[in-house]
Design a protein around this nucleic acid. Structure first.
Lengths: 249, 249
DNA sequence: ATTATCTATAGATCTATAGATAATGC
DNA sequence: ATTATCTATAGATCTATAGATAATGC
């Protein structure tokens, strides 16, 4: 694993984000691509842009990667590694509320660092069969992890979610909320100027995720989790800008 | 409102979908564009493709529309009209379970008919300020409608969701699940060949939406809603393909 | 010798327009 | 006269490669 990948895997990505001289060109390409993709959207970034941004020739870029798809695939592998790492579940002890907080914070950190990815997900999967297959397995691993976390939270007496059926449906909803929260912020919430999103806003998604769990909290832990949830309550109540609805018909 | 727009607004779109000779060229362009966008994704459809599909010259297309963005904007206006129509809330009577079913079915019908739209939403909004503004207001109207529906379901004694705060957070989760369900199916669920999605599969999203409401059902209606939910239970339990998770670290 | 880089470019699109021509409605 | 349509094309990209040159590691 290259240095910058390690640094990412441990969440310092914001710090080490700028490609520096000492890096191998190959790694600089990956890092700059990620930067540009996140900033401008994958669709708006060509191989020319990436090369220009690094002040290398397009020919040089193609010496290291066969095409843009290959670059994206490698970036995905790092993303995958990071999230798999974050979602590791301790097998030798019960889960605590701190664990839950860590999972939530980490997952949104991951989404933030690779935020270009979900934006153009469908197109990316349509154009790269490897990515398609890997991403499908990745999703399934994530879903399995969420279910397992809910199971262990149940064992720990924090929530009460014993029906496997229900646990699996609720887990899926958590996944849907987590992976769609950013798009919601960028499309519904944001002001007139395109998409200036902050990590803090993104983490208000935790409020929404905990909303799903509210009904299943045990009386012993309810108060603590409600307090945790309050910490992420959106400052601007965006869903309250009630615009008058046109009545049709 | 052109004929095809009316037919769409009343949900026969699947029938009248093929552009026919009698239509004005302008409407044929809109309809073919929608068809191609849904089928291949907006990103993969150029003005040339649209013209070729209709066997007209690109010049002719540009006589009717200034650019692709304008076509998309007009299609959005129809989508908006359709959903606003579906989400009309009767002010003179209480809501019933049939109303709830109608809302759920209609919303997923709308998503299906304009399924290209959410796929490239962020890009579309970034490139068209009008669309950006209109879509933001549209989202807010939808959220307000969901909240109002929950309020009226509470009044009707079907669910119990009296805290305004909670109602608004739950509504937002419903929106997130609804608008992300299709992307989930296409990316996580689908087989090796790209995206062959059916309306039936899409409507299994109703199962997920009703999962959110489960904890808030009143005892009087619980059984009926649970039965309704069962009608949409996915046939293939996709979230149960538990792939072994790699443990990292 | 091998690896990394650059220059130059062919070939493929796509967008959007100008200008000519055909069809239609008074 | 006005509206609709077509032909032809300029200009702007972008991808990906061939072939030359520079840098590096034994």
């Amino acid at each position: 694993m290259a240095d910058w990948a390690i640094s990412m895997a441990f969440g310092w990505s914001q710090i080490t984000t700028i490609a520096d001289e000492s890096m191998k060109t190959r790694d600089k390409i990956l890092l700059s691509s990620l930067e540009l993709f996140n900033e401008r959207g994958e669709r708006n970034v060509t191989t020319n842009h990436i090369a220009a941004h690094l002040a290398i020739s397009p020919g040089n870029l193609y010496y290291h990667f066969r095409n843009k798809s290959d670059i994206i695939y490698e970036i995905f592998l790092e993303y995958e590694k990071l999230v798999d790492y974050y979602l590791t579940i301790p097998q030798d002890r019960a889960l605590t509320l701190d664990d839950l907080t860590f999972y939530l914070e980490s997952v949104f950190d991951g989404l933030w660092s690779y935020r270009f990815f979900h934006r153009d997900l469908e197109y990316l999967l349509d154009t790269d069969p490897r990515l398609r297959k890997d991403y499908r397995e990745f999703t399934n691993r994530c879903l399995a992890a969420i279910q397992e976390i809910f199971w262990k939270l149940t064992e720990a007496g924090i929530i009460e979610l014993t029906s496997e059926d229900l646990r699996s449906a609720v887990s899926l909803n958590v996944w849907l909320v987590v992976t769609n929260w950013m798009a919601f912020l960028k499309t519904a919430h944001a002001g007139d100027e395109p998409a200036s999103l902050t990590l803090t806003e993104l983490k208000q998604g935790i409020y929404q995720v905990l909303t799903i769990q509210l009904p299943y909290l045990t009386p012993e832990y309810r108060e603590q989790v409600v307090a945790l949830r309050e910490r992420y309550r959106p400052s601007l109540p965006q869903s309250c800008e009630l615009v008058g609805r046109e009545k049709v018909g």
